[in-house]
Each structure stands twice: as C-alpha cells, then as structure tokens.
C-alpha cells in the first residue's frame, strides 16, 4: 500500500486507513461545532425570550448601536473567512507554507481589525452609560419596560463577548500554527496528503463567522432604525 510511503507517524495506531482517520477527525470536528451551535443557541434563546417579552425595550436598545459600524465589521469578518479559505486551499493543493502563512496572517489581520473596532464600540458604551450592572441609564424612558433595555445590553455584551472570546482563542491557535510553519515543525507540514488540522481549524473559524452573521441582525438591525449618519 502506498499509505506506508506517507510516513507511519501520521497514521495513528487505532485507524486502519488514512481515509478513515480523515473522516473520523472531521466528523469529530462537526460534532464539536454542533455542540457550539447549541452553546450559542442557548444565549440566542435568552435573546428570543426577552425580545418576545419586551419588544419596545429591545428596539430602544438596538437603536443605540451603530448600524454602519456593525455593517462594516461584518464585511471585515467575511474577509477573514475568505483568507481562511485561502489558507485551507493552499494546504489542500500543496501550495507551500508561505501561502498557508499568508492566509493565516490575513485571517489574523482581519480578525484583529474586527476586535479593535469592537473595542471602540465597547468604549462608546461605557461613555454613554450603557454598561449593564456598572453605569446603566435607560436611553429611552417613555416606553413600556424601559428598565429592560439593560437586559438587551447584558445580552449584547454577553453574546458579543463570547463571540470575541472565540475569536481570540482562534487567533491564539493560528499563532501556534504560524509558529509551526515558520520553524518548520514536523506537525506543521501541511500539503495535499495532510491538511486535516488546517481544514479543521478553518471550520472553527467559519463557525465563529456564522455566529456573527446572526448576531449582526439580531443586535443591530431588528427594530427598523433611523440611519446613523
């Protein structure tokens, strides 16, 4: 079998073929992502629950967010997903470590921009007394359940915070991958035969992107805004 020629160290002892190993690891990754869907889904469930109970307060809350910044940040995150696709593509087609690294650097770059923008958005919330449990003052008073706007911002900080945390974890993993690529570590030689790690990580990063794809309309758009500039 030519599988012997690929180097014994890469086929773990408990698998029979490379095909089996690859399929198993991707199945595992997808199951992990299904788990992540349920994890974020719980937070979205809290959102759905409170939005049904206090629609006015949630509209008032989301009108405090800058739709245009959210829109531009969505584009930035989509770009990071594309650079991730590029890295996976480079690995799958044996384009060499430089192109893989390029894709990863691009992903870190766009991810970084996203987080920096998020940092300034958070800062604005502190300035405008919109941080729940810290300095919150309801932005609109003459609506039913005005005090529940604080719950909207609790969800805003909770959900975007968890999303940002997932991004930071992802960027940490990418830093390790880049370290491996630059120092030529044996586990970081990714080519046509062996790219499970890059592809698996790519799935994680795209998942984080999907979370934002839902967070953007849920937090920024629902509730018909006036234009913000």
């Amino acid at each position: 079998m030519s599988s012997q020629a690929l180097g014994e160290s890469k086929l773990h002892h408990h698998f029979e073929t490379y095909e089996q190993q690859k399929e198993t690891s991707f199945l595992g990754m997808w199951l992990f992502l299904a788990q992540e869907v349920m994890f974020f889904g719980g937070a979205f469930a809290a959102y759905v629950n409170y939005r049904t109970l206090y629609p006015e307060a949630f509209v008032a809350g989301s009108q405090q967010l800058d739709t245009t910044i959210g829109f531009l940040n969505t584009l930035v995150l989509l770009c990071s997903s594309f650079t991730m696709v590029y890295a996976v593509w480079a690995a799958q087609n044996s384009k060499g470590p430089k192109k893989i690294a390029l894709g990863l650097y691009g992903t870190i770059f766009f991810g970084g921009i996203f987080l920096i923008v998020k940092y300034f958005e958070y800062g604005a919330k502190f300035a405008h007394h919109l941080v729940p449990g810290y300095n919150f003052i309801p932005p609109v008073q003459d609506i039913p359940h005005a005090e529940s706007t604080e719950i909207f911002f609790a969800l805003y900080f909770g959900m975007t915070g968890l999303h940002a945390l997932h991004m930071i974890v992802g960027m940490g993993i990418m830093a390790v991958m880049l370290f491996g690529l630059h120092t030529g570590k044996s586990w970081a030689i990714w080519d046509r035969k062996n790219h499970n790690f890059v592809e698996g990580f790519g799935l994680y990063w795209h998942f984080v992107d999907i979370v934002w794809i839902f967070l953007f309309p849920f937090l920024y758009l629902l509730g018909a805004h006036p234009p913000s500039f």
Binding site: G70, F71, L75, F216, Y220, L221, L222, H225
Partner: peptide
C-alpha cells in the same frame, strides 16, 4: 450584507 444593512437602515 449590504442588502440587509441598506434595507434595515433606509
């Protein structure tokens, strides 16, 4: 993305 933003904002 542009469509959803434009439709919601304008």
């Amino acid at each position: 993305t542009t469509l959803t933003w434009f439709s919601a904002a304008y």
